[in-house]
């Protein structure tokens, strides 16, 4: 076993273990903190794959924005620390069946992919993945249209949130 494999196993154990803690921990804030550790583990995998931009973007978006928003929402919930509902509800059987089926289908789909047998070609030194990503996002042959569609969607969401939060003028309604 090489050094890289050892690190991979430790990272995988950390990510999966904290993901397990997310769903089993009684305290909601603890769940959120475990979720952050799991997401951080995913960022570590990106570092492992030499995808530094994706790793940093993972930390900025998932830890910096989504998780903090989540914790904020949890902290605004009343009496969150005293909440002691049982973590297993009556639907546990069907939840188990659905998740095992879904997991099986996913494993089957992924195992059909031929990329598992081949090893990844080594990146040459003078290739800048960040520059290639940036050019792919604006090039019409690559991802220009999905990128613009996503931008318009986000803009619509922004304007919508402003409209929702708009202070109603007196005498209008």
């Amino acid at each position: 076993m090489t050094f890289a494999q050892l690190i991979f196993i430790i990272l995988a154990a950390m990510t999966l273990g904290s993901a397990f803690m997310v769903v089993t921990s009684r305290n909601l804030v603890h769940s959120a903190l475990w979720l952050i550790l799991a997401l951080f583990g995913v960022a570590c995998f990106f570092v492992f794959l030499n995808a530094s931009f994706l790793a940093v973007a993972q930390v900025v978006i998932y830890i910096g924005a989504i998780s903090i928003l989540l914790i904020f929402a949890i902290m605004l919930t009343r009496r969150v620390a005293q909440d002691t509902a049982p973590p297993i509800t009556g639907n546990w059987f069907w939840a188990l069946v659905t998740s095992v089926l879904l997991f099986g289908v996913l494993v089957w789909m992924v195992s059909l992919w031929h990329g598992f047998q081949s090893t990844a070609p080594a990146l040459s030194r003078n290739v800048d993945p960040l520059r290639q990503l940036g050019q792919a996002l604006v090039s019409p042959n690559a991802y220009a249209i999905p990128f613009e569609v996503a931008s318009v969607l986000l803009l619509a969401a922004l304007i919508g949130s402003i409209i929702v939060a708009w202070e109603k003028r007196l005498g209008r309604g």
């Binding site: 930390v59 900025v60 910096g64």
Partner: peptide
């Protein structure tokens, strides 16, 4: 730098 700033908020 931005990502590390996010962790410090945490």
């Amino acid at each position: 730098i931005v990502a590390v700033g996010a962790i410090s908020t945490l």
